[in-house]
Amino acid sequence: MAGLIDGLSWLALLGGVFFVIVGGVGLLRLPDFYTRLHAAGITDTMGAGLILLGLMLQGGWTLVSAKLLLILLFLWFTSPTATHALVKAALSDPQNPRPLLHEDAPPSKS
């Protein structure tokens, strides 16, 4: 049982590192600011989630795990807010370049 939890925890840690690194690659690779936000979102949700989950499995039922859960909740509540504030500030800044858009956008629901 302990071995199983250990294995799951390593798996979660490795998966988390994978998502974090892909988020970092996306941060460099995507073409403009608005698309890079999505890459930052990967790091904030899955990357942080899996790494903290892996640490929680290592910690077991202790106060440390409760604190890790609290960190995770704070991250998941604050990161969309920060992202929204960023994109809103960027869009309302007249000097900032407009987002690159693909031509065939679907018709908006009215």
Binding site: G23, L27, A40, L86, D93
Partner: peptide, 29 residues
Amino acid sequence: CGILACMVLAMARALMGPTVYDRIMAVNA
């Protein structure tokens, strides 16, 4: 080490970032 590698990538974006918002986003990440 994996997280550190990704921090390097984020730092590169913060240094390159054409707009100030790119930099803020990179620092946030």
